[in-house]
Design a protein around this nucleic acid. Structure first.
Lengths: 335, 335
DNA sequence: CTGTTAGCGCCTTCAT
DNA sequence: ATGAAGGCGCTAACAG
């Protein structure tokens, strides 16, 4: 494939027999250009397959109308839905999104490298959604670029953030089980270094349970994906009638452990998840869970950022979004 | 937040008391710079929080070491896993990935806009994975940028592509059911305008079934997500003992319809999906499916593209990857 | 080893 | 209404 040199405004200018300034003005639709010239220019541009060089443009304008997004792991539907929401809103406001993610677990240095990549690309702003990245790690970039954090609240000055209250969800879900009549409930607690948000959910669940005079059996697990192993030993004669998991994926793993016990185990134990979107939201699974408004979080993050970029509002804004309990078939009154 | 002007090499040069060329050379690690000056320069760069302007660099180098990726819809695990695989491989080869996706259904004009955005950002190459975008729509861009298509094979000259053979999967899955003893099998056929790949899967299934002397009951459905409705009327006295779906998500929907029939319906009907990764791969669901190597497809796409960029190999390469049947609990011998 | 110089493609005064 | 000219930040010859 012989690749012809990419056409520039100069090529168009020659082709249309005008100056490059005229081309620039015509294509930008600003300044005055005679209708006749404009037509010639547009024609030439189309003929040459002209696509403006955002780099060159950015160099003189020092803005790109591009927003960089850092995701912890798109493989988790949580982040995929977030990305989708952001893309939709950005398009609506005529910005473009470029997203980066990490294969597997997003380590801090990877995230920082992605942020630098994005800044190097001269994005106008950044949305960061890697749950594990400590604020102080990216705070230095704040004086370069506006940053919005999606998915958790941030206190750092100069930052805005939007998130769904994890404590709210934890309480609501626990209340749901309590309302069903459960009095002895296992709660999977994830290491807060892995995810502060999961930890918060668990803490809220425990809160509600004990506040209601019921008993919370805390099960420690390093990550949500190891919940099943942690829970396994508990089943049997612990008197527990329900298990609360930090994520839907964890809930499925726990359900599988219960299933493997055979008999009516699946009827005897109630299980709850957390997230409520993506493939696992299928009614076939019928998971009882708390649904967080991912796409709305994404949209809001973009709005927050663009508002700030355009001076329509400042930073240090915090938006709290609410989710809702999705009653499914995996939580029933205890036998 | 007062944003200080982004430091440039000139700032560093002043700070370190050298010429800007020296800075450029030192920071690039090419050319000779005295150790002493290099130290001063690196120190100044760090102090100022310097991040190179990829735009300016690209303008003179006319390459960015950035690969643009166009995804149909990250919300589908299929694309999310693809993206993850690409990101991993690109990092390994020291390229960066910027991905764009679309909220909801990726219409042709959206995809084209994304492609233009990416080209405008001067990506060195493009990986396109929006199943619906016809080749001739993006072929014109080929003379601007190398393009690799991930997820389907392309014949257009100048293109390379990597995909998992859908016919292979369809045959294997059908053979699995036939081996189990099913003789009357429903196959959900999706409109080829929605997805040629789904259609290919279905055709292969029908092929295998009839070739084995069994009966294939074809059920038309506009998209995979409407499979359940299409199948519903079939259940009952059609004599069908198994239903083959174009995707895992569709399989779950069909399973739910079967579940809702109550009784031992779930034991009487076998159901197969297609994809085999992401949340639905959970053993709790135990879906019988065909697992396609998404991350490997992603990695291969990146290798194909970078090899081409670096002149290590040409275009017009086609890589076929194989998946495998995942025997689950949703397919059993007929009662 | 080092500094000077000339653009990369584009937008934007500034004259005309 | 239009063209000429300067410069955005950077790299890559080219001199010294």
């Amino acid at each position: 494939m012989v690749r012809s040199r990419t056409p520039t405004i100069v090529d168009i200018a020659v082709e249309a027999g005008v100056s490059k300034s005229a081309v620039s003005r015509a294509l930008l639709g600003q300044g005055d250009v005679s209708a006749e010239k404009r037509a010639r220019i547009e024609d030439a541009a189309a003929r040459l397959g002209y696509v403006a060089n955002a780099m060159a443009r950015s160099l003189v304008r020092s803005q790109t109308r591009t927003i960089g997004v850092v995701l912890r792991d798109v493989k988790k539907p949580y982040y995929a839905f977030l990305q989708a929401g952001m893309q939709a809103q950005a398009e609506k406001r005529d910005y473009r999104i470029v997203a980066t993610t990490n294969a597997g677990e997003f380590e801090v240095e990877d995230a920082l490298r992605e942020i630098k990549n994005l800044i190097s690309l001269q994005v106008d702003g950044l949305v960061i959604a890697p749950a594990r990245l400590p604020t102080d790690q990216f705070a230095p970039f704040l004086e370069r670029t506006p940053i919005v954090v999606a998915g958790r609240w941030e206190e750092a000055p100069g930052l805005s953030s939007v998130a769904c209250d994890d404590a709210d969800g934890g309480h609501a879900l626990a209340d749901h089980l309590l309302g069903l009549g459960h009095r002895r409930i296992a709660v999977v607690q994830v290491d807060e270094n892995y995810s502060l948000r999961y930890k918060t959910r668990g803490a809220a669940m425990i809160d509600s349970i004990t506040a209601a005079g019921a008993e919370a059996v805390v099960v420690e697990s390093p990550t949500d994906l190891e919940s099943a192993a942690a829970v396994a030993s508990l089943l049997g004669d612990s008197g527990v009638t329900a298990v609360m998991c930090p994520t839907d994926a964890a809930a499925l793993d726990v359900l599988d452990v219960i299933r493997l016990r055979g008999g009516d185990a699946l009827e005897r134990y109630s299980v709850t998840g957390y997230d409520g979107y993506g493939p696992l939201a299928s009614p076939y699974i019928g998971l009882t869970t708390f649904k967080t408004p991912q796409e709305e979080i994404g949209r809001t993050a973009i709005d927050l950022l663009i508002d700030q970029l355009e001076g329509r509002s400042g930073h240090d804004r915090f938006v709290a979004l609410r989710g809702e309990v999705v009653p499914g078939r995996t939580a029933r009154p205890p036998l």
